[in-house]
């Protein structure tokens, strides 16, 4: 498949309260058409800032200080605001976390989606309406023609999230960025929306960046996973490989901190949930060596002195660790 997005050496600097720091550091990411890449990390790891940089929506106090974001033969890092506005919504769609609040309560849902089509595709009123009804059908909204005239408050959370997805997909973007798309939904709705995601991925074949901290969502939807910590990618691999045995101690820590219901002989003896001790260091006060070293069970003197680069491993995996879990028998 063709390369859709190629981020190289992306560094985003912030300047607030007289402090300068980098929230994203030298991030390399590549994404092919039809691929779903999950960007995983705790709050403040830089995953959302990376996405905002791609959308050209960094807050005023932030700027891209280094690196390129190649997307459809252009470098988004250097695109002007007007050109960026033409890319946004048309070539890159964004799905927000909160379906309850990301639709305008005073506008009917159909016209809200039609508005984007009319803006980017210069579609006429009738054509836009037809296209929106098709989109609603695509995201499995029952009776799309009738729902077109609903206000957001007349819809359930799941239905609204479908509208939000339809909005993001309206112009058939080459890249879809979904920021915690299921976090605000209840569990049964979550499952439906994830299933919809998988179906749409097959039907439309856009590349998707899924930003999440929910590893269960990752396991169900993503082809590849990039784990971020303190502004850097610390591990990247195919998602099966990651769940089979992560290389980086931080990824292992994340995996151990999600509950697993066991069946069979082990049932009744639930595995203890293990949290990662300590907290993410603030980006303006990172340790000299590996940023994770102070919380890492495997940290050595080298880790504290020298920052590990992102190194290649078998099967196209990458990890930034001096003491990766490469021993197979150690797999959790």
């Amino acid at each position: 498949m063709s390369r859709v997005l190629d981020i190289e050496g992306l560094t985003v600097g912030f300047e607030t309260g007289g402090r300068r720091f980098d929230a994203v550091r030298e991030v390399d990411l590549a994404l092919d058409g039809g691929e779903v890449l999950a960007l995983v990390g705790e709050s403040g790891s830089g995953k959302s800032v990376t996405a905002l940089a791609v959308m050209g929506l960094l807050p005023e106090v932030a700027e891209i200080t280094a690196g390129t974001i190649r997307f459809e033969d252009r470098d988004l890092a250097r695109l002007g605001e007007a050109e960026m506005a033409a890319v946004r919504g048309a070539r890159i769609g964004l799905i927000f976390q909160e379906p309850m609040t990301s639709l305008n309560p005073t506008m009917r849902v159909g016209p809200q989606v039609a508005e984007v089509l009319r803006l980017h595709k210069r579609a006429g009123a009738a054509a836009a309406r037809r296209a929106v009804e098709e989109l609603f059908a695509l995201v499995r909204i029952p009776d799309p023609a009738a729902r077109y005239d609903d206000f957001p408050h007349q819809m359930s959370g799941g239905m609204r999230q479908r509208v939000v997805i339809a909005l993001a997909l309206a112009c058939r973007p080459a890249l879809l960025i979904a920021d915690e798309p299921t976090t605000a939904l209840d569990v049964t709705t979550q499952a439906q929306i994830l299933e919809l995601f998988r179906d749409l991925q097959r039907e439309i074949g856009q590349a998707t960046i899924l930003i999440t901290h929910d590893l269960a969502v990752v396991a169900e939807t993503a082809h590849r996973v990039a784990v971020m910590y303190a502004g850097r990618i610390v591990e990247e691999s195919a998602s099966e490989a990651l769940f089979a045995g992560a290389l980086h101690p931080y990824t292992r820590g994340l995996l151990r901190s999600i509950p697993v219901v066991r069946t069979g002989p082990a049932a009744g003896h639930p595995r203890r949930l293990v949290e990662i001790p300590g907290t993410v260091p603030p980006p303006w006060d990172l340790p000299q060596g590996c940023a994770f070293a102070p919380r890492c069970p495997r940290a050595s003197a080298r880790c504290r002195a020298e920052r590990p680069p992102l190194m290649p491993f078998d099967g196209g995996r990458r990890a930034a660790c001096w003491h990766p879990h490469v021993e197979r028998e150690d797999a959790a």
């Binding site: 959308m55 929506l57 960026m84 506005a85 033409a86 890319v87 946004r88 919504g89 048309a90 769609g93 964004l94 927000f96 976390q97 909160e98 609040t101 990301s102 639709l103 305008n104 309560p105 508005e115 984007v116 803006l119 980017h120 939000v164 909005l167």
Partner: peptide, 17 residues
């Protein structure tokens, strides 16, 4: 600060609009 305004920005709409 409402999400739907941010969402409108992400669709490439102009500020006036």
């Amino acid at each position: 600060e409402e999400d739907f305004v941010s969402a409108a920005v992400t669709t490439g709409m102009s500020h006036t609009r």
